[in-house]
Design a protein around this nucleic acid. Structure first.
Lengths: 339, 339
DNA sequence: AGCAGGTGTTGAAATGTTTCAACACCCGGA
DNA sequence: TCCGGGTGTTGAAACATTTCAACACCTGCT
């Protein structure tokens, strides 16, 4: 079926016997429209199956009713949950979510930013995880409001939602130290150097604070993205000498993969290895061994980011704001007394 | 910062000393542009920080470079993987993904469909899981290409990607029957009645086919969406009398939740309960007890859907096509000889 | 009767791009 | 010299909507 003809506001106006402007007024509620006129327009819309072309609005307002969200890993429930937070608020405004998975690839990120700038998204929320701040030039050029999630330590003048990653690392480390662990492994990525670095430093600070000069914090990169690679990590850890008795993971997905592999191969958690995750995704508490983890309230984070975004969209001249979340240690079974 | 003035193609043209049309030609490569003219335009774009407003294109082409994807649960890796498939193909075309989570709620679905119609998405891929076909009226009115994923059995004239759900149910049932199980539980949702019903019937058919008149297939609804509720299911199952020795789950998420709960509480899988999942998400093979499951190639499904969509977008008059995937039984550890 | 104020409606301008017929120019061949 | 055929460029129309000053009409008041 070749679309016969696009139904426009003009067709509706003609059928209802009113002018274009009046139909527009009716649709947007700009001015009051008399009851009988309204009825005629409603009928005309019904008959013509008219669907307003919002995209054209961009012509005057220069902005579509659309919110972009860039995440580094759509497969991680943590980001899914953030997306949910953003989405719920966006929906409340009649906005729609453009969800882009950059796969941690800055080239792909740049491509999406360009696309979003060209389509004149109403706003962008970007979860920055790479070590370099992304090039937001195109978006700034077209005046798009931007909110950055995470990426603390990056020099960027935008509104942002942050967490105290350093404190998070500290809490996790303090916890295992208090449990008596001395050989601890920090299984970093994925998640961008700055964030990870901050947590690592927090962990080191915890050692200092407790004056535990016998405690050693090793470090390994777990930046492999595939689930498969994540679980190989468990075997590597068990083969290390001196063998760590506790591991601080970059996120819960890594932690769960390790727990699963260990339990599957007959090792005990936390008996053979204590494990601490990061994020507190829903699966964390339902894992075979419920996971001790550092909680970041993903939904709240998403919702806050959206809030900041709309705040800025409504008042582009206003000041940049920052909302900060404090990490919280959730102790469950996967950590415990070292052997 | 109030955006001083939107930079338009006109500004670029003026600065480069050429006409609008030439700049347009340069940007789209419509006609060849002389080298020196090109250089002047490039410089002008650089200086003015011009970003073309693609949204305006909708005026002529009546279609934005955007693909909508509606899924019932963005938190399920199965759909994330489908999204990846769609996204990769879309990106190849310079299109961007508008990802919408309907949360299995048909009201929200309707809202999104409306929004997408108004913004004139270039196409829509909808993973239909409710029992009723969604109302695509608005989109059809504006001539948007549509591809339905799943929703077999629904009366809809669109291109579609389907799986033989009946066969899937049959494979799963046949497997546990052959392992000697006679008390089998079918833990349905979430996932929409039609799909689930087809699998259930497949399972029944398997019993008939094997002439196992002593085999009994019970049925329970696992449609609760929260991860928490999913794992309560395990306890309910263990409390059933007669107690099932095998369970066929609506998806891997449900299956994994059951496995985790069982193992955590000291029960053996498959010793105490054999478990078969559905979908074969990546986590299935990495679960504490690697999951026997019925595989649906999510990425491929997404990619195929996108292919069908673009096919239709390029030739709206062409015929509707259907790509069908055969389910495949993947046997791992979670099923096994009944006690 | 005249007027103020309110309510509804109109018509046209404005928005940023693409498209396309028409034009200008140049080069080589007859 | 004239012509044919490229190659580049132009200018204006078209697209679907919003916005807004201006207008028409009505009501109730003086």
């Amino acid at each position: 079926m070749v679309v016969a003809k696009n139904v426009t506001i003009k067709d509706v106006a003609a059928l209802a016997g009113v002018s274009l402007g009046t139909v527009s007024n009716y649709i947007n509620g700009t001015r009051t429209v008399a009851a009988d006129t309204r009825a005629r327009i409603e009928r005309a819309i019904e008959v013509t199956r008219f669907v307003p072309n919002r995209a054209v609005r961009t012509l005057r307002g220069n902005r579509t009713h659309t919110v972009g969200l860039l995440v580094p890993d759509a497969g991680n429930p943590f980001f899914t949950e953030i997306a949910r937070g953003v989405e719920d608020l966006a929906r409340g405004r009649g906005d729609v979510l453009v969800y882009c998975d950059t796969a941690g690839d800055s080239e792909r990120q740049a491509l999406y930013i360009r696309s979003l700038a060209e389509m004149r998204v109403g706003g962008l929320i970007i979860s920055a995880t790479a070590s370099m701040p992304p090039d937001l030039g195109d978006l700034e050029a077209v005046g798009t409001p931007i909110v950055v999630v995470g990426g603390e330590g990056m020099a960027m003048s935008t509104s942002r939602v942050t967490f105290d990653q350093r404190l998070g690392g500290m809490l996790a480390m303090k916890h295992v130290l208090e449990l008596g662990h001395r050989q601890v492994l920090f299984a970093g990525g994925p998640g961008g150097e700055l964030v990870i670095q901050a947590r690592y430093e927090g962990a080191l600070a915890a050692i200092d604070a407790l004056g535990n000069d016998r405690a050693v914090l090793h470090r390994v990169d777990a930046a492999g993205r595939s689930v498969r690679e994540r679980s190989k990590l468990a075997d590597e850890i068990m083969a290390m000498r001196p063998r760590p008795t506790a591991v601080l993971c970059g996120n819960d997905l890594i932690a769960i993969a390790i727990v699963n592999t260990l339990v599957r191969t007959g090792r005990a958690v936390p008996g053979d290895l204590a494990i601490v995750g990061y994020d507190d995704i829903t699966d964390a508490q339902l894992a075979v061994v419920p996971l001790t983890t550092v909680r970041q309230p993903a939904y709240q984070i998403g919702a806050s980011a959206a809030e900041l975004l709309f705040e800025r969209a409504d008042d582009p001249a206003g000041p940049h704001r920052e909302i900060s979340f404090a990490p919280e240690l959730i102790v469950r079974d996967s950590s415990g007394q070292s052997v």
